[in-house]
Design a protein around this nucleic acid. Structure first.
Lengths: 212, 212
DNA sequence: CATAAGTCGTGATTAATTTCACAATAGTAT
DNA sequence: ATACTATTGTGAAATTAATCACGACTTATG
């Protein structure tokens, strides 16, 4: 918890850096410059250097960064060694997408259980993840602290309340509803319809160049 | 294209405001204050007032905002009357989720066609949207200017090149790959794995309170 | 060894966004 | 009418993030 001074904008880019460093490593590249990385992840090179610098001097002047070293560093920083268990609520199309995906490669998160209100889905198993009926939420969730919400908006509030009572700490909400939670619980909203509309708005109103 | 001075951060919130105003309207509410709206969309009320103020004085002091008026205003501003056609590339789980969803309510975007490389999927039809084989991309896409990419990362570059050649203007990229496009094309990346990892990182390193 | 080329780390600057805080005004109640 | 209350719109301040630009250092080359 020491490095709480890292800007949120930087923190959000860390997983991205991590994945690309992993790619480079698999490709057998031993070193990389902020300029090269910049082209790969589409983030300004000065921003990358600044981001890295919050963690200390990780590179060498005139050389760049050693891929393996950097990777090892981020592995620790991003807690890649310790897997965070995640519960998925709602096994519709979107939920199924997550289950099949299940963040297989270089990832520190794992969906360990899923819930659905449809009895024909529960008792099943998708991508090796057991699916339970939503009624079993409280019994099954154990000490899982992170949930992905891929349910209809109308159910968001009810499920959220139950998750909060189960001691959940973070929710990734794909529901269009903006859910209310106690202050100490973190919610990230990803609103697919809004994202698409925003893209369309930018296309019409913000003439060429300038990525998001 | 007149109001190019609207901050990007504001522009990204507009679709969200629009949807909640619609909800309020359906509920029969005639007026709303920035404070109420703030609670609903989880955006600071001063930010909401500031956002609205870029479009002029839309509210009344001591009263708030007239829901219907505001809604009418945003409908025009967000081009809600004119539907933007969208093509979906990749009818896997995630792609299917989009097709079934298809942004039915209060939306100015519509997926009008989908493509997949699996012949057993193409020639089909999901949620009323025709699915073509990816080989037909150039023949079928017509003047659709926006594409959603829900394909494996390995195919991202190839498909992107073809889309660019077809004259695409905006891409909503769900692929983990950071695609390269000419300057005048807008790409928004939504990286599900990164979002989840970022949430986990925040949980571990940023103690309670403060939503993203 | 000396020179050239490349690249980091960061102070300083600029830009973007959020938040504070309050005067002005509209509505409401008596 | 008058007083009271609610709420906007916005100047100013604060915060956060991105970018510039350059000194210092590393490696490569002849």
């Amino acid at each position: 918890m020491e490095q709480s001074k890292i800007p949120q904008a930087t923190a959000k880019r860390l997983p991205l850096y991590y994945r690309f460093l992993n790619n480079l490593n698999h490709q057998g590249k031993a070193r990389v410059s902020s300029k090269e990385l910049s082209e790969a992840v589409k983030v300004d090179s000065a921003t990358i250097r600044r981001d890295f610098s919050y963690f200390g001097a990780l590179g060498k002047k005139g050389y760049g960064y050693n891929v393996e070293y950097l990777l090892g560093f981020f592995r620790k920083t991003l807690d890649q060694d310790e897997v965070t268990e995640v519960a998925l609520i709602g096994v519709g199309n979107l939920g199924t997408a997550f289950l099949n995906y299940n963040f297989t490669k270089n990832n520190n998160t794992k969906i360990v259980m899923a819930f659905d209100s449809d009895p024909s889905k529960s008792e099943g198993n998708v991508g090796g993840v057991p699916i339970y009926h939503i009624a079993e939420l409280e019994d099954r969730i154990g000490d899982v602290k992170v949930a992905i919400l891929t349910i209809p908006a109308s159910e968001a509030d009810g499920i959220t309340t139950r998750l909060v009572d189960c001691g959940i700490e973070g929710i990734l909400n794909f529901t269009p509803a903006r859910i209310s939670v106690p202050e100490h619980i973190r919610v990230h909203h990803i609103d697919l319809a809004v994202e698409l509309q925003a893209l369309v708005y930018f296309l019409k109103h913000y003439p060429l160049d300038e990525g998001l």
